[in-house]
């Protein structure tokens, strides 16, 4: 188990290293002179030189890169070009809103996916099943930027139940969470249905039934445990889409989180903040993924054995 943990963590670290390199190179993807793009064409040459120096862009690339990593290790993410404040400080203000939204979105997804998936599997081939699968098809096909406005239209404008946008109180969290969670709910309910159907066909379920156990006990105590394992992996992988989804969802609902900050900073050409936001979201995803793998390995010994096989190959 320790070997598995170490190998998983070291590969996660390597990926974090690579991801930050790519984010570092992002600023060099700006066509032409990045400093000119950031300051505008009418800027003074002296100002440009000053900014170029402040960003370290006058140094050779390897030196810039080393300096970048040295700063990252100290959580120094630079200074915003727009507000002149430390980027780390700006991020810290925005993290709670995004974390709240992501957790609520995840909760909404599970709240819908679990009953839908279980009902679809247990009532296979009935209208319940086709209804749940239709929801799933719609859920994956309606992107956040359409789901959000549609929910606003129905629940805020027509019914007047919930606020249109902003972050004030629990009611304002409901629609963003639903918007963010729908796609994940759709994917998860399909997966839960599929794995539960597979598990229900196993012999030990037949045994449990033959013993005379009631259906709900068989499903929730015997079948769900095994059926949930692949679901957890999928959940870990899909969290990335959920995190990326916060960007668009925050824009739709004017939710003051990291995603909104990312897009605002792109439009302001405040690239140090953009880089930091992208880095923060990706690193969070890598770490969550590594944790999911570890949890999975802990739940199912076959995984860590298979993993160490693959690591050796």
């Amino acid at each position: 188990m320790i070997a598995f943990v170490l190998s998983r963590l070291s590969s996660a670290l390597l990926v974090v290293f690579g991801v930050s390199a790519l984010v570092f190179l992002l600023i060099h993807a700006i066509p032409g002179d990045p400093v000119e793009v950031m300051l505008g064409e009418t800027s003074q040459p002296a100002d440009r030189e000053e900014l170029r120096h402040a960003l370290g862009l006058d140094q050779p690339l390897p030196v810039q890169m080393l300096e970048y990593y040295r700063r990252l290790l100290h959580f120094d993410l630079g200074t915003s070009l727009y507000s002149r404040r430390p980027v780390a400080q700006i991020l810290a203000e925005r993290i709670p809103a995004t974390a709240e939204l992501a957790v609520a979105g995840l909760a909404a997804a599970l709240l819908f996916a679990l009953p839908l998936g279980v009902i679809a599997a247990v009532r296979r081939g009935t209208p319940w099943d086709s209804g749940a699968m239709m929801f799933s098809m719609l859920g994956v096909s309606i992107p956040n930027f359409l789901m959000g406005p549609l929910l606003i239209l129905i629940f805020s404008l027509w019914l007047g139940w919930l606020p249109v946008s902003g972050r004030e109180g629990l009611a304002s969290l409901v629609l963003p969470a639903l918007t963010l969670g729908t796609a994940l709910a759709a994917i998860l309910s399909r997966m839960i249905r599929a794995t539960l159907l597979e598990t229900l066909a196993e012999d030990y379920i037949l045994t449990a039934r033959a013993k005379g156990l009631p259906w709900h006990r068989v499903i929730f105590h015997h079948a769900m445990r095994n059926a949930m394992l692949p679901v957890i992996t999928l959940l870990g992988l899909q969290l990335g889409a959920l995190l990326a989804g916060t960007v668009i969802t925050e824009i739709v609902f004017s939710w003051p989180g990291i995603g909104q900050l990312t897009i605002e900073s792109i439009h302001r050409r405040d690239y140090p903040v953009v880089q930091a936001c992208i880095l923060l979201i990706s690193v969070t995803y890598v770490l969550v993924n590594a944790l999911t793998d570890l949890a999975y390995g802990w739940l199912d010994p076959r995984v860590r054995l298979r993993q160490s096989d693959r690591g050796a190959a």
Binding site: V15, V19, L239, L243, A244, V247, I248, I278, S282, Y285
Partner: peptide
């Protein structure tokens, strides 16, 4: 590349 979530 896969470590960048979705459309990010």
């Amino acid at each position: 590349f896969l470590a960048f979530p979705g459309i990010l």
